[in-house]
């Protein structure tokens, strides 16, 4: 079963990558010159107090010993305790993960819609001014990173024409009590559309900023792939059957053109998730990235570690899911 073997090989490679990432983060943050413990204690604390607290967080041992202890904890699901927030890292991180996931997925959906529409229009109107305009637009969108698009959106929809919220995840005045942190999802299930609308209004600009570069990439790759497919015999055959150009593109060319685009979108989506770090900061959105920057500024070693490992996990899982989707969609691989 070569399909299963490929998946297992990918899983093994994923574990190696995660382990390597853990080692690097662990070593890098322990070279930090400032003493995080000293920052936690009120001025006037004795050397003895500092030593005791260091021992409490295990910071008096060698890096290697600390790593073994940390890894042992991770295996049991214990990522340590945040120094600045004094709560288990796992709880903190899992509490913020839904906000970041919702933002990333909303951005992905926006990017697929905009990029897909641009690619389809460009293919339908290929070799015309419309296609040239789409090329220029996507070239521009791709040249400028999400951070700058975020700032431009703030100016457009926060200042010039203030229709959306420019900071936070949800208005504090709203009264609701949800079971999960997946607010957007849960608000629909509970039919709280006031909460839903407020969330969307907060998420619109940050997710659009994240989506713009990805939409440009999707537009370029998918259009190129579609245009190549349009020359193939089965597309011509479909034309002779009486289909319009638009349905030839969507019915015959698209299912094939999507496959090569999909693998590339996977990598690009991990870049998008990486982009949430600064975008969440820019829009004061209470997600993982915003928490991560605070953790770095506060030198909260256990929390930084936990967040970075979670990001690495997220990235590798996305790549794995993309690979499996590709295999599932491609009949040649499915039956191999």
């Amino acid at each position: 079963m070569p399909f299963l073997r490929t998946i297992l090989a990918r899983l093994a490679a994923t574990l190696v990558t995660l382990f390597g990432a853990a080692v690097i983060v662990f070593v890098v943050i322990r070279v930090v010159p400032g003493n995080p413990i000293a920052m936690m204690l009120p001025p006037g604390a004795t050397e003895d107090d500092i030593a005791r607290l260091q021992a409490l967080y295990g910071l008096d041992k060698s890096i290697f010993e600390q790593f073994v202890i940390w890894l042992g904890g991770v295996v049991r699901g214990d990522f340590g305790t945040s120094i600045s927030l004094r709560q288990p890292v796992l709880n903190l991180v899992l509490g913020r993960l839904p906000a970041t996931l919702e933002l990333s997925i909303m951005a992905l959906v926006i990017a697929v819609f905009i990029g897909g529409a641009m690619a389809l229009t460009g293919t339908l109107r290929r070799d015309t001014r419309t296609e040239a305009a789409i090329d220029v637009t996507s070239g521009m969108a791709l040249s400028v990173p999400d951070f700058l698009w975020g700032l431009i959106l703030i100016l457009l929809f926060g200042v010039l024409w203030p229709v959306f919220h420019i900071s936070g995840r949800v208005s504090p005045s709203l009264d609701f009590d949800f079971q999960t942190q997946f607010y957007l999802f849960e608000s629909v299930l509970r039919l709280r559309f006031d909460v839903w609308a407020d969330l969307v209004s907060h998420m619109f600009m940050p997710s659009l900023a994240l989506a713009i570069p990805l939409a440009a990439i999707i537009s370029q790759l998918l259009k190129q792939s579609l245009k190549e497919t349009m020359h193939l015999d089965y597309v011509t055959l479909a034309r002779t059957k009486g289909y319009s150009e638009a349905s030839v593109i969507t019915r015959e060319a698209l299912p094939n053109a999507v496959l090569p685009t999909l693998t590339l979108i996977g990598v690009q989506f991990t870049f998008l998730i990486g982009g949430t770090v600064i975008i969440e900061r820019l829009f004061s959105y209470e997600g993982l990235g915003n928490m991560a920057i605070d953790a770095v500024i506060n030198r909260d070693l256990p929390l930084i570690q936990g967040i970075v490992i979670l990001f690495a996990l997220l990235f590798t899982v996305v790549n794995l899911v993309v690979d499996m989707t590709y295999a599932a969609l491609n009949p040649r691989l499915r039956h191999a």
């Binding site: 015999d233 055959l237 009486g242 299912p255 496959l259 009949p331």
Partner: peptide, 24 residues
């Protein structure tokens, strides 16, 4: 015109290996 051709004319293509959509 497209529909009339589709209904009244059909093509047997040259290369059977490339004339069927591989994902359907």
């Amino acid at each position: 015109r497209r529909r009339r051709i589709g209904a009244q004319v059909a093509l047997i293509p040259q290369d059977p290996l490339t004339a069927l959509n591989p994902v359907r």
